[in-house]
């Protein structure tokens, strides 16, 4: 299953240096387990941040060189539309559930999926090929340790949850051996309408004009609104009800105590243990 991982231009939170986002490292780990020839895709001014992905299991890297603050979405959509129409079309596009280093809205995978007319599945912790060819089984993380197992038709976009397994450790040799292909954004965008027609996706064809435009994507700010971040304290987790009083039982018979405990659990909907004896 040919797999592509979207990589963002993350910065280390302390040093501010370019580094590979941890979540995307986990996405690379999932991709490498499915496809030994998985590739990374990055749109940005350089590959400093994402080159380490080669050392974690990517076989190659595609870098679309855009200028500093440009919106990466048109470049990504253009490249992916081109790739999906080509011979070696990627079947699975993986991304972190939120890119880092930019506006961090987490909208890029959704916009990419919408522009390309692909389904999107969020918060994957495990993926594997489905029983039918051309399908993928995704385990989504849910609250309280539950998982939702979803079978989805390929090609698809899948975002990765922080609870997914740890990636392969970094290795220097593979990073040096990995091949980086550089692309220019303008050439990719020119191909878009033709590919959209060929793929037969109404969404892409309908949106092709504004994809080439200037303001698409998760831009909800003008630079003037930016200011240094101020850490604000989170709410304290105060204790819940201190009921006391009525619910205090001093020295009950152990059997009676056990009955009280199970009744309390069932009354509050925590657990249900079979039928109470009539």
């Amino acid at each position: 299953m040919r797999t592509l991982v979207l990589l963002s231009d993350a910065r280390h939170p302390v040093s501010g240096r370019p580094h590979l986002s941890r979540l995307e490292t986990q996405a690379i780990g999932l991709a490498a387990s499915l496809d030994p020839a998985a590739r990374g895709l990055h749109a940005g001014s350089g590959e400093d941040a994402v080159r380490a992905g080669l050392g974690h299991g990517l076989a190659g890297l595609d870098v679309i060189e855009t200028t500093g603050e440009a919106d990466p979405l048109p470049a990504l959509v253009g490249f992916l539309a081109d790739a999906l129409g080509g011979a070696d079309a990627p079947e699975l596009i993986l991304a972190g559930r939120r890119g880092e280093g930019g506006f961090e809205t987490g909208l890029v995978p959704y916009l990419v999926a919408e522009r390309l007319g692909l389904p999107i599945v969020a918060d994957a912790v495990a993926i594997r090929a489905g029983e039918m060819p051309g399908t993928l089984v995704v385990d989504q993380a849910m609250a309280k340790g539950a998982r939702r197992r979803v079978t989805v038709r390929l090609p698809a976009v899948v975002t990765v949850h922080p609870l997914s397994p740890l990636p392969r450790p970094f290795a220097y040799g593979p990073m040096r051996r990995g091949r980086i292909r550089r692309h220019s954004p303008a050439a990719e965008q020119a191909d878009l309408p033709a590919v959209a027609k060929m793929a037969g996706h109404g969404t892409v064809a309908g949106r092709a004009e504004d994809t080439g435009g200037t303001t698409v994507g998760p831009v909800d700010v003008v630079p003037a609104d930016e200011r240094p971040h101020r850490a604000r304290p989170k709410l304290m987790r105060t204790s819940g009800t201190a009921a006391g009083g009525a619910n205090l039982h001093v020295g009950p018979d152990p059997t009676e105590a056990a009955r009280l405990i199970l009744d309390y659990l069932e009354a509050n909907g925590i657990r249900r243990y079979g039928k109470a004896p009539e």
Binding site: S239, A243, N247, L248, H249, A257, A258, I261, Y264
Partner: peptide, 18 residues
């Protein structure tokens, strides 16, 4: 004092009963 259901009893006795 913190508990919503407080039972003053030896836990070693309550466990087998439970």
């Amino acid at each position: 004092e913190r508990a919503g259901l407080a039972i003053v009893q030896d836990a070693q006795l309550v466990m087998p009963a439970l």
